[in-house]
Simulated scan of single mutants.
Amino acid sequence: MIKLKIFISVINTATRFTRYIALLVMASMMLFITFGVINRWLFTPIIGDIELVQLGMVVLIMCGLAYTEQAGSHIAIGIIVDRFPLRVQKIFDFFANLLTTLVTITIGYIYIEVALNHQNHMQLSTGLLNIPYYPIDYIIVLGFIMWGLQGLLKLVILIVSIFQTNQDSRKEV
């Protein structure tokens, strides 16, 4: 049980860290866009402002995915599932969390190769400011891995709750 608490603490701390990165990027983008619009209106446009905002959006979205999973804010369709008994709902939750974990960690793992390829062989960069893409690729990896770890955390908590429920029901008999 102590190992589970440590596991929960580590993943939630890492999620909190990525959440703060997303919030910092969002606030920075807000200030930068405001400054860019005022500067365009009064003086001269800022060169590359659109590129910087586009890269900021990638960082914002990728760093916000794990927190969105943690908060349960991803799109969910419960119209049908919510009508089933609690045990069947837990089965659906199990498979949903399992698929989330497998798919997101697989994407993150595969994207490591993309990031390494962009860093070492195919050095792509933005058109105007020549900002390389590979650091953004690593942020994409981080976002998907963290999302997958939050899915894994939900899966583990669900499994533990099922076993605790089964043990509690055996004690009553």
Rank of each mutant, 00 (worst) to 15 (best):
E69V: 15
L129N: 09
P85M: 10
G143S: 12
Q150L: 03
A96R: 04
D93P: 01
T101K: 03
D82Y: 08
L153R: 08
V114A: 06
I50S: 09
G36V: 11
A14L: 15
L158E: 06
I33D: 07
S73L: 14
H121P: 01
G148M: 09
K5E: 15
T44S: 14
I61Y: 03
T44P: 00
Y134C: 03
K90L: 06
A66M: 09
R83P: 01
L128A: 01
L153Q: 08
Q70N: 07
V25T: 15
M57T: 12
N12T: 14
M29V: 10
I77P: 01
W147R: 00
I61G: 01
L129Q: 11
I11V: 14
L152F: 14
A27W: 02
I79G: 06
C63Q: 07
V10S: 09
L102N: 05
L23H: 00
F35P: 01
E51R: 03
M30G: 15
I157S: 05
I107V: 05
I105T: 13
I50H: 01
N166D: 08
G56I: 07
M30F: 15
S9V: 02
D93T: 05
V59Y: 02
I2W: 13
I159G: 00
I162F: 08
F163R: 12
V53G: 08
W41R: 00
A115R: 04
P45W: 10
N12L: 11
F84N: 03
K3D: 07
I105N: 07
K171E: 14
F92G: 00
I157G: 02
D82N: 14
Y134I: 03
Y133Q: 06
L149I: 09
V88M: 13
L153E: 09
P85T: 07
G127I: 06
F7S: 05
K90A: 08
T101L: 13
S161C: 00
N120E: 12
K3R: 03
V88P: 01
K5S: 08
M57Y: 09
A22V: 12
D137R: 03
K154L: 11
